[in-house]
Nucleic acid binder design. Structure first.
Length: 273
DNA sequence: ACCTGACCTCGTCT
DNA sequence: AAGACGAGGTCAG
């Protein structure tokens, strides 16, 4: 497992690197990580999905030539198991934005609505509780730079606080059922739903299809997936998703993450700062 | 059922 | 230095 590659792959945002240590917040937990950390720690084991049979995942995905090459370039990149509520809000806030922007918004949200804690000689803000965001005014949320997403966040937090959205239930449901439920939330479309499912609800067949993945598929997989449109519509999303899972198999979500990481690195896009 | 345009805000780039 | 541009989408018409 490679810490830098894993953290800098666009799946988590509330992390910063100081010297050779990564400091981050996952829900109510503050984590400090370095490349030689203790993997026996329970939180770490859970967070990094060490329960997954990565050898098998690697073997499955290596059937695809492109992916085999990309996995050799980033052999230590993993998908993380995030705190669901933090992940849910993070990707609602991500729409039509770039990574530095998303990171700023989440930091401001945590600072305004999260509990302050001291650990490792530093000050942290935990990720806000659903109740806190549900009861916040849209105006105060707006101050965190969310723009039109402020109202999404408020409603989404209310859904969790009321129990309309229940993460442990979603985990037990099938991928498609869980996705449909998430898409009922104002501000969540299929792409955001897939991010939440893949990064926090153990649905490894979820494949977030964004502009980048679309470009990647056009560039390297024009034979496998004939993509006509420039943007993704409701319909093309499902069609494409089916083909992708057919091609990559049950760990298609991992495939997406490797391809995304690879392409962003090639274009030297920004990660966490 | 599609398809198109508007949308908040903040980095960058010019 | 001010203004334009685009960024890991979603909603409404």
């Amino acid at each position: 497992m490679n810490l830098d590659d894993t953290i800098n792959s666009g799946q988590i945002f509330l992390w910063k690197k100081i010297n050779s240590n990564w400091y981050g917040v996952n829900g109510k937990k503050i984590l400090i990580l370095r490349q030689d950390f203790d993997i026996k720690n329970n939180d770490i084991h859970e967070f990094f999905r060490f329960g997954d049979d990565f050898q098998r995942i690697k073997k499955e995905l290596s059937k695809d030539k492109m992916l085999k090459k990309v996995m050799e370039r980033f052999p230590g990149m993993r998908i993380l198991r995030q705190d669901p509520f933090q992940c849910y809000i993070s990707f609602i806030v991500s729409s039509n934005s770039n990574i530095p922007n998303i990171q700023t918004r989440l930091r401001k949200l945590s600072r305004s609505f999260g509990e302050k804690k001291k650990k490792y000689g530093q000050e942290f803000f935990l990720f806000p509780e659903p109740e806190k965001l549900a009861n916040a005014s849209v105006n105060d949320i707006l101050k965190c730079g969310l723009g039109y997403r402020a109202k999404y966040v408020k409603k989404a937090a209310i859904a969790v606080n009321e129990g309309t959205i229940n993460f442990s239930s979603l985990k037990k449901q099938s991928y498609l059922d869980a996705r449909d439920d998430l898409c009922q939330v104002f501000g969540i479309g299929k792409k955001v739903a897939d991010c939440i499912l893949l990064f926090s609800l153990d649905k490894l067949e979820a494949v977030p299809l964004d502009r980048w993945v679309l470009r990647i598929l056009q560039k390297y997989y024009s034979k496998e997936f004939k993509i006509k449109t420039k943007s993704i519509t409701e319909k093309t999303y499902d069609e494409l998703h089916d083909k992708i899972v057919d091609h990559f198999g049950e760990y298609a979500g991992y495939a997406q993450q490797f391809l995304f990481k690879n392409e962003r690195e090639s274009f030297e896009k920004k990660w966490l700062g």
